[in-house]
Amino acid sequence: MKNRLLPFLLLLVILLSACGNNDTENATNPPEENSKSDTITYQSENGPVEVPANPKRVIVLGMYAGNVTALDVPIVGVDPWSKMNPRYKLEGIEEVTDESLEKIIELEPDLIIGLSTTKNIDKLKQIAPVVTFTYGQLDYLTQHLEIGKLLNKEAEAKAWIDDFKQRAQQAGEEIKAKIGEDATVSVIENFNKELYVFGDNFGRGTEILYQEMKLKMPEKVKETAQGNGYYSLSIEVLPEYAGDYLIVSKDEDTDTSFMGSETFKNIPAVKNNRTFVVNAKEFRYNDPILLEYQLDFFIKSFLGK
């Protein structure tokens, strides 16, 4: 009887031992479904959206191409305004709009980023996850942080923000020491035969000049442009809005004849060579790529570095 039980007992010991090893292996190696997911849930302004954890083919239908590019995330399609920006270096990237659905399908995006005003949202959602932002709802640095969260690169976005603020504020202290604490700066731009002056949150370098560097804007600009971020005016009244220093965001695609007028030439900032002319395409937005360029321009222009 003992001889018959021995093989059975040995088999039982082997089976129990195998089960124990499997339990140990399972404890140290979680099931595959519990491993890191290929997607994350981004809490957008319209609710949670499941997006790729590591997007590889992003389409930007708005003004955020510079934010995405700065975070080293591949873009396969951009809006026309971004495409024409020389600082983004988007050669070979397809130009698309919210109407070119067939082209967007061909590009096989895994994420689409747009503005709240983007058309055909429901159709775009059938192609890839869509996240939109309302322009101006977030300040310019928080906007970049949110895009960092969306692209699963929040740490990288936060590190850049902290470093940029420190450098811009330091440059502001040096500039104020040179031009005086009370010196004023205005930012103007020509567009569609109109002239505009800007507040502190509408691109064109205004966030750097006013928010970070704490340079002063003329009272007339503060009264009219701070609400909407900009104010339309005529060349005749431009001298009333011009500060001690004048930043001219020049759009070569529209009428620039105002710069040849006697009214413009007689503005003190122009007569005293305190006018800095920039390419409007390179100054229009406030993403990291353009902000870095704008900060460098201001340091060189004001400080001669």
Rank of each mutant, 00 (worst) to 15 (best):
I175R: 03
L12C: 04
N54G: 14
Y293D: 13
K271G: 03
K125F: 11
V185Y: 15
A242M: 04
N266I: 15
I104H: 01
G66H: 09
I267N: 00
L101Q: 05
L238G: 05
P86L: 02
K281T: 11
Y42E: 01
A53P: 03
I93K: 08
L111F: 03
S100H: 08
D251Q: 10
V73M: 09
K178M: 08
K165P: 11
R87D: 14
K250S: 14
N29S: 10
L215C: 01
K176G: 03
R284H: 13
N273H: 11
E102M: 02
L150R: 02
L9W: 05
P86R: 06
N190C: 07
T224I: 14
E207R: 10
V187C: 05
C19F: 11
I161T: 05
E106Q: 14
K305N: 12
A53L: 10
G172T: 04
S82V: 00
P52Y: 08
G203S: 03
N21E: 15
E154R: 09
I75Q: 05
P48M: 05
E154D: 11
P218N: 04
A53R: 13
V270G: 04
T142S: 13
S301T: 10
H144T: 01
P48Y: 10
L233A: 06
G114A: 04
T132V: 14
T118R: 09
V73D: 06
V131Y: 08
M63W: 09
E212S: 07
N34D: 10
I14N: 05
T41V: 15
F297K: 00
E240Q: 15
I113Q: 01
E282N: 06
L195F: 12
E102I: 11
N21Y: 15
D244V: 07
I188D: 01
T39P: 01
R57Y: 10
S44A: 09
F133S: 12
A157D: 03
L238A: 06
N286D: 14
N272L: 12
F297M: 03
F297Y: 03
A157H: 00
K300L: 12
Q226G: 08
Y241F: 15
N21P: 11
T224P: 05
A159H: 03
A18N: 01
L290P: 02
